[in-house]
Simulated assay, not measured.
Amino acid sequence: MLIVVLIPTVIFILLLIAYPQNISLVNVPKLLSQAIAPAILAWGVSFCLVSGNWDFSVGAAQLMAAIIGGNIALKLDLGFFGVVIFAILTGFICGVITSMVFYILRIPTIIVTIGMMLIYESLSGVFFNGFGVTLPMKYLIIAKFPYNFITLILVFAVTYYLYNYRKIGYNVRAVGSNANVSSLCGINVYKVKSIAMVIASTYAGIYAMVSLGTNGVQKASSNMQTTSIVFDAMMCVFIGMALQSLCNLVIGVYVGSIIMQLVKLALMVFGFPSQYNQIVIAVFVIIFMTISYNGNIMNSLFHKSKAV
């Protein structure tokens, strides 16, 4: 755990030393706060990735959850509490629809989720005349302290409980390790993967709630624009997987989200062109994954050299 905490700490200290005029300790609470929303979506996506799913529809599910949930809350004048209820409910419904399509058709998840992503994006331009949603200032409370960290703690606790203490957590790990063996042991592989999709989209609804409570605006999207949100979440999960030998995946995902925010901060401070940010971030993640997947080989080599 000390190593896990040291990784983002060392990165921040290096940035602090290199650019003291642009970075200070005042940035720490902001970085921790900015890491909340990506971590929430990444926790949902982690159930899919661990089970062997590729779910590219969660970004579009978040889009639908924000637009539908926000507009219903506005029309019924329910305040931000209405956004919480209807955004999460819409995300859940999108997950149920996507999972049913997958369960019935029995085709690869990457094909199903890309198709559903395109459908959800198209619907975002149809619902409410394609204007998206804009919330008044009184709705923008979730980004304020302590509500932001209360949300983080609650979602973290639920995720930790589901992943480590409920059957679904064990099942997604079993299916991800070996789907054929899991099936022979009595686990319904398609059912587990479908539930993982529902969980991911429900977390997309929570992400939509946090995003709306921070920015107050969600516009309709098209042409697979929502995939950027999905890739950001996946990167957090990949870093969490790379840290799995050191800490629980749920903790590692949030640390991964902090690391991603630090990388983005570094790119901004260095004046790196924004259009190349995803390339640098992708390389950064590949390094983490290489360390993770080759960890056993490196350990065996180290022990052999030590024995010699």
Rank of each mutant, 00 (worst) to 15 (best):
A87E: 07
L89A: 15
L89Y: 04
L89Q: 10
T90A: 03
G91F: 07
F92R: 05
I93Y: 09
G95F: 11
G95T: 00
V96P: 05
V96D: 04
V96Q: 08
I97T: 13
S99Y: 07
S99R: 14
M100T: 10
M100S: 15
M100G: 15
I104M: 09
R106W: 11
I107G: 07
T109D: 10
T109N: 02
I110E: 08
I111G: 05
I111K: 04
V112C: 06
V112K: 02
V112Q: 09
V112H: 04
I114V: 15
I114T: 09
M116K: 09
M116L: 02
L118N: 11
Y120G: 06
Y120N: 05
Y120E: 01
E121R: 14
E121Q: 07
S122W: 13
G125P: 03
G125D: 05
V126T: 10
F127E: 01
F127I: 03
F128W: 14
N129F: 10
G130N: 09
F131G: 12
G132I: 08
G132P: 09
G132Y: 02
T134Y: 01
T134Q: 10
P136S: 01
P136W: 12
P136E: 05
K138S: 08
K138H: 02
Y139E: 01
I141D: 05
I142C: 13
A143R: 02
A143E: 14
P146S: 06
N148C: 12
I150S: 08
T151K: 06
L152C: 03
L152Q: 02
I153G: 00
I153F: 09
I153P: 02
L154S: 04
V155I: 12
F156R: 01
V158G: 00
T159D: 05
Y160M: 05
Y160A: 06
Y161Q: 08
Y163F: 15
Y165R: 15
K167G: 07
G169C: 02
G169S: 09
R173K: 11
A174I: 07
A174E: 03
A174C: 12
V175W: 10
N178K: 00
N178E: 06
A179V: 05
V181I: 15
S182W: 02
S183E: 14
L184W: 11
C185E: 11
C185Y: 11
G186V: 00
N188P: 01
Y190N: 08
Y190T: 08
K191V: 07
K191L: 14
K191N: 14
V192L: 13
I195Q: 10
I195M: 12
I195K: 10
A196T: 04
I199L: 03
I199C: 11
I199A: 00
T202V: 05
A204K: 05
A204S: 15
I206R: 11
Y207N: 00
M209R: 03
M209L: 10
V210H: 08
L212F: 12
G213L: 06
G213D: 01
T214K: 11
N215F: 15
G216V: 14
K219Q: 06
S221R: 12
S222Q: 11
N223Y: 14
N223G: 12
Q225P: 05
T227H: 00
T227C: 02
S228C: 04
S228M: 15
F231Q: 01
F231V: 13
A233C: 15
A233N: 06
A233E: 13
